[in-house]
Design a protein around this nucleic acid. Structure first.
Lengths: 341, 341
DNA sequence: TGATTTCGAGAAAACGTATTCTTAAACTTA
DNA sequence: TAAGTTTAAGAATACGTTTTCTCGAAATCA
């Protein structure tokens, strides 16, 4: 069953292919009777345009991609994805969702594939392993970086972030104000700008009580952004001779791992351990503990990311690099104990 | 900055365009020295194929789409999406994620757009409003229905489901065994096969204690699959003069709404109200209540959905309709009180 | 060696569309 | 009315591929 093409319509309506095209795109004037005949033939034969062919001709696929580590790990990215989709669908754009799994090769394969598929733009939460390649690619394909920066001079594109670093500072200061001194940090890989930024802010807060934080710091744990890593970190910290009284947990996935550790080991929050995390967890209002956490407006953030990539596409990538940062709201739950009392 | 094309490579290597194509696809024999020259030119100029052009020629875009109500409402679909992506990316397929919002027009627009974009297949959780259109479309585009069936003779495609109906029966019987008689049903729209199926199973279970369930049933609530609807249902039930002692809540979103109602009104679970839901909620192990719920293997289900659509694509949609059903595991938490005690 | 087959690679057509180019007709103006 | 101008629509080209067709050369066989 062959699809009906513009040629079939032209034949049926007794006009040229060009005329049909003009009617379909109605961007050019065509006589009323011809237009009627064409529209009738379209209706009758159920014709619809082939956007692949149009894409080839017009050099635009009306497609953008989001490339992230794991679209299902938390509600955070689900919301951003939905929000981006909601923006771009206005212009009949559709969204490829691609998972890099934080793996060098997977990310690289996807970047190549997306380039080959001629996507009009890419929103990417970089793994950090292909930054040179991405910087180069950004000169050909409009790009928006999500949360993780690329500090290379030849990168061309926008950067959209939420100030989780600032939230880290605020949450850590709150731990300190509640009397905590032995505060563990469950960090992500420091070569990621997002993790490093939070690390720096934690360090800055700890400096206020004259604690020097470095990778030598007794209560420092560096691991990937996974639930397993959060679990393992807690295992290490809470079996120490002199365990920390509070934890700052950098990421929602590591926080989930930590909570699982606490619950399975009957460690009460906040009686036995306090914690805070600069990330929102899905359904945090219904968890058995209400964490102290920070939450950016993911809907607004995703919307902005979508708008930024669309801007950049519309002006053919000829635009200075922009940076946007959303300030998360810090929410205080009951996961921190005041140990002065 | 024009992209380098197969022609540029041909000129550079001093061969014909056809030869370059043959090397790129290496599906045809070409002399070693020519191949070397071509490969060298490709390397030197950073050539990569234009998959839009290839798609036009080969009539295949290596793209499939998933069209669901809301990709961010629960972790359920996030996991399925990720799992599908994981399967199809093996063949260099990419996935469009599209949200119909359960709206007739939005769904219809997307279906048309996806057809125009020549996607190779569509996995769809239908809204129920465009079933005739979808059935017709299914004869041109390979389709897999997710959870919601289309009972039209001209539908062509597969159906993949999880037996939440069976779980409803089991969970309701459990409520009954725990002494409950006044059991409220928070239902979804009955014109959806998924909701209707659960309704029928609830009814069947209630029949065992001689309670007739119909839309006239005192403790019946029908509303959309949203948190707001779940909240409203609880409001209605729990302000009745003779409120139900237990609830069967059909959907994860309505369950979340219900939990929010309970918590904000200091209604204790299970002391004041018991409930069960044939759906898994994200992080249910970390909620303040452990619900009685059912959970299919979403990873396996998504994987199978991906495989089914790929099968269908590979055999050019010439295949009988298949039906697959996954049996959820029922998990008993502490959301049900035994009122015999 | 001559006839036949195999093979490798270039030429050309095709995929479905948008758009430039061209031309004939309609309209304006003096 | 003649010359110039606008306009509408068809013809033709192009987008970047794949693949069929064609043909000359090499290889096989009698």
């Amino acid at each position: 069953m062959k699809n009906v093409t513009i040629k079939d319509i032209a034949r049926e309506a007794g006009v040229s292919v060009a005329t049909v095209s003009r009617v379909v795109n109605n961007n050019d004037t065509v006589a009323l009777d011809l237009r009627q005949r064409v529209l009738h033939a379209i209706e009758k034969n159920g014709y619809y345009p082939n956007l692949v062919a149009r894409g080839l001709k017009k050099d635009s696929t009306q497609t953008i991609a989001i490339l992230i580590a794991d679209s299902s790990s938390s509600e955070y990215f689900s919301h951003i994805i939905k929000s981006i989709e909601n923006v771009i669908c206005m212009d009949n754009y559709t969204l490829f969702v691609c998972n890099s799994l934080n793996e060098k090769d997977t990310e690289l394969n996807y970047l190549n594939l997306l380039a080959e598929k001629q996507v009009d733009g890419i929103i990417v939460n970089v793994s950090g392993f292909n930054n040179e390649f991405i910087a180069k690619l950004s000169n050909n394909i409009p790009m928006v970086l999500l949360h993780r920066r690329i500090s290379l001079p030849n990168f061309k594109g926008d950067f959209i972030d939420a100030d989780f670093g600032g939230s880290c500072y605020e949450l850590t200061m709150n731990l300190i104000e509640n009397g905590h001194r032995k505060i563990g940090l469950i960090s992500g890989p420091l070569f990621l700008s997002s993790a490093y930024d939070r690390y720096v802010n934690f360090k800055r807060a700890m400096k206020s009580i004259d604690v020097e934080v470095s990778s030598e710091y007794k209560y420092f744990y560096e691991g990937p952004f996974t639930t397993e890593s959060g679990y393992a970190a807690c295992e290490r910290f809470l079996t120490m001779e002199d365990p920390p009284t509070a934890l700052l947990i950098m990421h929602c996935d590591t926080t989930i791992g930590a909570l699982r550790y606490f619950r399975s080991h009957q460690i009460r929050v906040p009686e036995d351990i306090s914690f805070a995390s600069p990330c929102n967890i899905s359904l945090s209002d219904l968890l058995y503990v209400q964490p102290n956490y920070a939450m950016p407006d993911t809907w607004a953030l995703g919307k902005r990311a979508g708008e930024m990539i669309m801007d950049r596409i519309k002006c053919n990538n000829e635009m200075i690099n922009r940076e946007v940062c959303y300030i998360p709201t810090v929410i205080y739950g009951n996961s921190v104990k005041n140990i002065h009392l």
